[in-house]
Design a protein around this nucleic acid. Sequence first.
DNA 1: CTGGTCATGTAATGAGTTACATGATTGA
DNA 2: TCAATCATGTAACTCATTACATGACCAG
Lengths: 180, 180
Amino acid sequence: MNTLAYGLLGLVAKMPSSGYDLMLQLQPFWQAKHSQIYPLLAKLEQEDYLEFTRVLQTDRPDKKVYSITDKGRAALREWLARPTGEPVFRDELSLKAYCLWLTDRATARKLFEEREELNQEHLSMYENFLAELEQACEGRPENPSSPYFGEYILLTRAVNSIREELNWCRWVIGMLDKQS
Amino acid sequence: MNTLAYGLLGLVAKMPSSGYDLMLQLQPFWQAKHSQIYPLLAKLEQEDYLEFTRVLQTDRPDKKVYSITDKGRAALREWLARPTGEPVFRDELSLKAYCLWLTDRATARKLFEEREELNQEHLSMYENFLAELEQACEGRPENPSSPYFGEYILLTRAVNSIREELNWCRWVIGMLDKQS
DNA sequence: CTGGTCATGTAATGAGTTACATGATTGA
DNA sequence: TCAATCATGTAACTCATTACATGACCAG
């Protein structure tokens, strides 16, 4: 049972979903490809943390909809109380920033402009998610008992940190522009 | 040649260092264990991106001090101009936040208090790094031509984002405390 | 008719962690 | 005397990405 496995249990615990669906839902918080998810789901099902029913669809491919078992829910509760691993952040841009002095202004500038753009896209995406959430739960996501609370605080953090990185990019570009 | 390899080249390009030293320098921006670094350095040396001299020490174990070759510097410059991979952030706390509704207030609270503490530690550490850097380069790290510029902008980003996550933790704890 | 989404899977490879291995010095 | 730091390496394992494989539907 690794972290990704608990992540999947956590999503399924809230709402039964297909592997494909879980992959999409998970993206913002834990990047994993379908090739990692499908085998894991099969394993979790074999070990009775999850169960699935095959849902037949006419217009699209059939799907397996997984739901959580009592054993799965118990495992989740136990996991929540166990020590949390430290976060891992790996950003190629940091490593490039370290050797900016080796290159010219134009190349350097481009690096941060691309990241600025990426952040701009992410920002509007997450702002939309947050707005949708606030609609969905009739304005009380700040209540820690609400099932939306977790998503609410996560989206808030995401929006804040993206906004900040965006400002950081602009600050760096500003310095790169000054011919000093 | 993967991202870590370029990261090592980038550090060595600025200052010749031992594998052990590189591991420590790299920690803030790219977490990698010595068991990953040593074999990579050996490979980079075999392929003439790096070269090393064995430095004998009396009080401590001898070390291999790596420095960059012309081929290594050329590879770095080329890498800087190539498209940058998207950052990867994996935080177990996000996944736990998602299923907070499954557990009690006390467990939830502890989760964020622990992260708050971690951020507090990181914050003072990075603030010190930044202060040291500002001393080291006699107050002009904002000059993009300075070899300190890269480190300066990275440390600034680190301090900002840690400070923000710290505030986020406190905000969440505040909500958890309100008996709503 | 081409490319995107939905849908699930396996195989091969690469990246990263943990454990094994050694050994001197220094500070609590 | 116990743990930490410095210093380098290998072996086994797990985790993650890329590539291989299939196939229907829909929009431009």
